[in-house]
């Protein structure tokens, strides 16, 4: 049995389900020679710049809701994936972090939601800047497979994946690129 823990669940993005190239590990050593790894924030920050930027593997970072993203902000360009945790569906801190990372600090890599991802939250996650979600909730998987996002036809706030409509208020948006 491998000691690499592959988190259960399927990776989903706007284009549908996809293969997840990343394994999640506590340390780089634990990840063995996996070509793409996600490490907890503490372990990730402990890596040398050289290791982080090594060309032979991608090393992403997992951030818990209680952890600060401040140390990541100056070096966003060197991070291939940031995974923000939702340990419970009602812990909404990671939505604000997504806004900061994607929209205020223009992170170009993949922003991923992991944890308790429920169907009613998927549209919110996409709009605050998440690219992908690691989903293991059965109902959510079913609905996503059926392309049912529980979304609404219009939004009252600017956000990702929406555009302005002429002839109405500046804060309103409709879905679509």
């Amino acid at each position: 049995m491998s000691d690499i823990e592959q988190p259960a669940g399927e990776l989903w993005g706007r284009e549908g389900f996809r293969e997840d190239p990343y394994v999640t590990a506590e340390t780089l050593e634990e990840a063995g020679d996996a070509p793409a790894v996600i490490l907890p924030l503490g372990a990730w920050l402990g890596l040398t710049e050289e290791t982080r930027n090594a060309s032979n593997r991608k090393i992403g970072v997992l951030v818990a809701p209680g952890e600060s993203i401040e140390p990541l902000l100056p070096i966003l360009d060197s991070i291939p994936v940031i995974a923000l945790q939702f340990p419970a569906f009602n812990d909404g801190r990671s939505y604000s972090k997504a806004e900061l990372i994607k929209n205020q600090h223009h992170f170009k890599g993949e922003l991923r939601a992991v944890g308790d991802v429920l169907i009613d939250q998927v549209a919110y996650m996409l709009r605050t800047g998440f690219d992908t979600m690691k989903v293991n909730h059965a109902v959510t998987l079913n609905r996503l497979a059926g392309h049912n996002l529980h979304d609404v036809p219009g939004y009252y706030q600017p956000g990702r994946g929406s555009h302005t409509v002429s002839g109405t208020y500046s804060w309103r948006r409709v879905p679509g690129a």
Binding site: G92, S96, M125, Y155, Y156, Q157, W171
Partner: peptide, 17 residues
């Protein structure tokens, strides 16, 4: 009214503390 609209199903602020 502007606040009502802006806060309706706000994607960032629907799971506050």
């Amino acid at each position: 009214e502007i606040l009502r609209q802006w806060s309706s199903m706000h994607p960032e602020f629907s799971y506050l503390p």
